[in-house]
Amino acid sequence: MEKFKKYIKELFESGEIEGFLGIRKNGLHPVPHLFTPEHPEELETLTIPDVRYPMTEILLTIVRKYPDKKLGIMVRGCDERALNELVKNQKILPELIKHIGIACSADLAASCRCAQPYPEEIHYGEKVAPVEDRSDIEAIDTMPQEERFDYWMSEFSKCIKCYGCRNICSMCFCDQCTLEDNDLIATGQAPPAIPIFHLIRAFHMAGRCIDCGLCEEACPAHIPLRTLYRKVRESMSGFLGYVSGTEGGEKDPLEFLGSEGYMVPSKIDEK
């Protein structure tokens, strides 16, 4: 940890970064914080807990106000996937953002069921094995159709329409949200129109979701949102060959019509 703090201090002194977005200890609670060269003493409170905050979401808040600053950000595997998508969507400039990599602990990787619990370059922690687990999707795929419908409807009916899943999502960076369109989503109604409220959000996660699971962690109704989004993520890679969160290369085929604009889905299975 001391070595890590020293590394950040060196980055400040060399002028490579003008701020470091990390986690600070506030009494018993680890909270996000922007460390700056003006207050190097704050680095004493720097901590790396097994708690995840939407770091890239916070980064966007800062970048919107300070688009020219060189910033360091503490990234886990999920944060790095989010940053890759943000670059593709032209929300951040990669040359201004320095990734300071954290490998997640085995405990955290297990509780997140994370398929990639480490970033490309690691500055703190040891790489642990990825967790490959799609039992949640399989459990639903094996249900008979009617049971599946009833299952999701009972889950969705718990929704209190807090918009927490959207608010905490690193990939929800649109200026306007279709879930706030009064013509499409009635106001003053909870649960919102089910299942369409959740399916629309799920659809928008296709090609975007980086499978960090913060949505499910933030859901006060314990709706298995992540399962839904993992499913659309799988559909995207199955039909359109796109996996969100990968570095560089191709962009989300649902949003970008570049040179691959004439590609059609590989197969449509209706069984």
Partner: peptide, 30 residues
């Protein structure tokens, strides 16, 4: 957690380690 940028409150995050809400908030809290 109130997000404060240059002395101005710009947003809210749920406190992940808080014993009451455990990282969750309702629409009023958000």
């Amino acid at each position: 957690l109130l997000e404060v940028m240059d002395g101005e409150v710009v947003g809210v995050l749920p406190a992940k380690t808080h014993p009451i809400n455990e990282g969750k908030l309702c629409i009023k809290g958000w």
